[in-house]
Write a protein that binds this DNA or RNA. Structure first.
Lengths: 216, 216
DNA sequence: CCGCATCCGGGGCGATACTG
DNA sequence: CAGTATCGCCCCGGATGCGG
């Protein structure tokens, strides 16, 4: 991208992260650090192969991404965020919070993908006070998710888990609203959400960031 | 811009604000709400006339911007941020904070413009505790600035002011570092900054947001 | 002057094909 | 699997024109 040529922190930042696809690549690496080229392609439907390739090179040159030559058995390269790349978390959080209302009017037929729940849960979901970590299994959209929420950090992975404290089953936007506390448990149940396990752990969850915004 | 076509808050947000120039237009309107077309051009060196025009239309269609048909005497149109547009402040704040370190290696010969100080001061500068508003006059870069910091809000305008509590004169990056509290008063003085007036008001200033990052 | 609309050259982007 | 190569298109940047 051509530089804006301004001595301004926003403009200089956009010189680096303003290219098409770049922030979405960061988003993907933020939630699944250590990712293969092909998995990035799958996570970013519509990106051209050459674009992904050149973006990754630029991002490496700009210090956002580091490539790593794989663990011994397999012979593939992995991409990781550097610390500087991780530092983009507040940027994604702010953009995501602002974009939340756009989720409401279900864009005619845009498919919902469970994977897209990973980032908001990782960024916004946290534990109220101290206490034992909470493990959730979330059954919505096209594939199951599991989330582990500790005091410091929330990590979300694709796939089920067996030792979950609570299993949540239901429509994507309702489950989303419940987890981000824009819907009460009662509302969620009424909208068809099923809770299996210790529903009490929901009391121990909190969200950060979400200012006002629409009803997801 | 072509949509990313993902049911994800970040992707949907970028569908709206991800276009080239869009966020810089928001930045400009954020700091000088009610701006004329021509003044936007001057604030965005390098933007093509047709691009500015079409961006403003898109932004209006997306509810970020409203055009207003001017106060009676003059016959020009003004552009304002809507509430939805104002809600992008945290996005610009996060991007700016991330981009701050990029300011350090003075991009070979990029001219420093005082106007570019307005946003960071407006976003990050605040008053410690309660108390009377503080008015600063800042003499650095290509034109003077004045900032009024109250409990709620900081507003920065181009041009001098007569009733300032404190006048600050010096090199841009040093003045910037002083105001954002990355340099002490002693360091700033040593770097050639002159303080005229009640230097004590500096004690009453605080900054928000700035995490770690390089030395501006 | 102010607020665009039009035209034109260049480059970034998107889709597909191809290779180690 | 992990990219590179190629090609058409459209967006962007720069200049000019034009009505109010």
């Amino acid at each position: 991208m051509k530089s804006y040529g301004q001595q301004c922190a926003v403009a200089l930042a956009l010189d680096v992260i303003g290219d098409r696809w770049t922030l979405l690549i960061v988003r993907e690496l933020m939630v699944a650090d250590g990712t293969r080229y092909t998995d990035l392609q799958k996570a970013l439907p519509g990106i051209a192969s050459n674009l992904l390739s050149s973006r990754l090179k630029e991002m490496e040159a700009n210090g956002l991404v580091a490539r790593e030559d794989a663990p011994p058995p397999v012979a593939t390269g992995l991409f990781r965020l550097t610390e500087r790349g991780q530092a983009l978390a507040p940027v994604l959080a702010a953009i995501g919070a602002w974009g939340m209302p756009l989720l409401a009017p279900r864009k005619a037929g845009l498919p919902f993908r469970s994977r897209n729940l990973r980032l908001p849960l990782q960024l916004y979901l946290t534990l109220r006070g101290a206490g034992k970590p909470v493990t959730l299994e979330i059954e919505t959209g096209d594939e199951p998710l599991s989330a582990r929420i500790t005091g410091n950090r929330t990590t979300v992975k694709l796939g089920a888990v067996k030792d979950a404290d609570l299993r949540i089953v239901g429509e994507p936007h309702v489950v989303f609203g419940l987890l981000l506390q824009r819907r009460t448990v009662a509302e969620a149940r009424k909208a068809g959400v099923r809770l299996e396990g210790d529903a009490g752990v929901l009391e121990r969850l909190a969200t950060r960031w979400l200012g006002e915004g629409g009803h997801a």
